[in-house]
């Protein structure tokens, strides 16, 4: 145990995800040794993030204004929406530079254990977006785990009758990987999702 502020800092850092007691201690002493300017910049960024960052009123992604940059970008295709669980998934899809449509961030996945039902996700907002007839395709990019699949199935059942094309991201083998190292579930899915080679 350290005295006063140092221990408080270690405790606070230790509450962050992925930071254990040892890492918390290391970060705390790093900050203690750092220049005041650097620490003040970090502190003011933390405050700013809480005060200024908002969620886009259209897609639910993090934004600095009412609407995020992707939703206001007129070059993006408004007819395709990619549905993801978290803002960090938007970043992951953006890195591919393959997708030129817009996003919808649900804010999680259906998980009754955690008390998360459809009403706790931004599903109503999604339905409102689909109503104007501009959107023709919906890509379900929730996580490929039990809860993500449940969310995707739920959305597909609800939206399919509306006459839109609903697709789900494929699951299968990682690129550059070896067949022998794939686990049976992944390999099994890759088999059932196989494509014809012309």
């Amino acid at each position: 145990m350290y005295e006063g502020a140092v221990q408080d800092l270690i405790d606070e850092l230790g509450r962050l995800p992925g930071v254990g007691p040892k890492s918390a201690q290391r970060i705390a002493f790093h900050l203690l040794a750092a220049e005041s300017v650097d620490v003040e910049r970090l502190a003011s960024t933390l405050v700013r993030v809480k005060n200024e960052v908002r969620f886009c009123t259209i897609c639910g992604n993090v934004a600095e204004a009412d609407q995020c940059r992707i939703c206001t970008d007129t070059r993006r295709d408004p007819s395709v929406i990619c549905v993801v669980e978290e803002p960090k998934d938007v970043v992951a899809v953006e890195r591919t530079r393959e997708f030129r449509g817009r996003y919808h961030v649900l804010g999680g996945a259906i998980s009754p254990i955690d008390g998360v039902g459809p009403d706790d996700l931004r599903i109503r907002e999604l339905l409102t977006r689909l109503r104007d007839g501009v959107v023709t395709e919906l890509i379900l990019a929730t996580d490929p785990n039990l809860e993500g699949e449940a969310t995707a199935t739920y959305l597909a059942r609800m939206i399919n009758p509306m006459g839109l094309t609903v697709t789900r991201l494929a699951s299968g083998l990682p690129v550059g990987g070896d067949l022998e190292y794939a686990d049976e579930v992944t390999l099994g899915r890759a088999f059932s999702g196989r494509r014809r080679v012309d």
Partner: peptide, 12 residues
């Protein structure tokens, strides 16, 4: 009661 998602879990 919220039975809409129950169908999904039934499927799983």
């Amino acid at each position: 009661s919220d039975l809409r998602t129950l169908d999904v879990w039934d499927g799983h």
